[in-house]
């Protein structure tokens, strides 16, 4: 559903609060379909927030965004989709590992996507965010 909406209705993302409406529904659907994803997101959030100089904000298209100083290190949407801004070189490394995809809408940019679906995905999501964090040293 997420991919369908983003692909065909993504052009509406600049309507004020529409992405937040979508994000609200994403969380409700995730809660019904796979509540463990929300728990995993909690744990990732706690871990990342313990890192030095990390702060959180609301992502402009909904979801929670992690920042180091003024730089974004990644954001998680309500369905557990983690988006991270890598360099193309780092992205290529993670894509080669086979678990990370190019960003679901922005290709050829280094932006990468990883779906958090189970508790086991927590460690890998943290590893990805840590790589992004270290890039901003």
């Amino acid at each position: 559903m997420f991919v369908f909406v983003v692909k065909y209705f993504g052009f509406l993302k600049n309507i004020v609060f529409l992405p937040h409406l979508f994000e609200g529904w994403l969380k409700i659907v995730t809660f019904v379909k796979s509540p463990k994803v929300l728990d995993t997101m909690d744990e990732i959030e706690s871990e990342v927030m313990s890192w030095e100089k990390v702060s959180v904000s609301i992502h402009k298209y909904g979801g929670i965004q992690f920042n180091k100083g003024s730089h974004e290190i990644g954001h998680i949407h309500g369905n557990g989709l983690l988006d991270i801004p890598f360099s193309k070189k780092v992205q290529a490394h993670f894509i080669e590992e086979g678990r990370v995809l190019e960003h679901h809408t922005i290709s050829n940019s280094g932006w990468s996507s990883f779906y958090i679906r189970t508790l086991e995905d927590k460690e890998y999501a943290i590893e990805l965010l840590q790589a992004s964090y270290l890039m901003r040293q």
Partner: peptide
């Protein structure tokens, strides 16, 4: 459906706003 999504969205926006490590100005939001 509108109420549900926007109250849920508001709760999660508020959750981020009131986190101690939120460096954004909540007053502006």
């Amino acid at each position: 459906p509108l109420l549900m999504a926007f109250i849920v969205a508001g709760v999660f926006i508020g959750k981020v706003m009131f986190q101690k490590k939120n460096n954004k100005l909540n007053v502006s939001a």
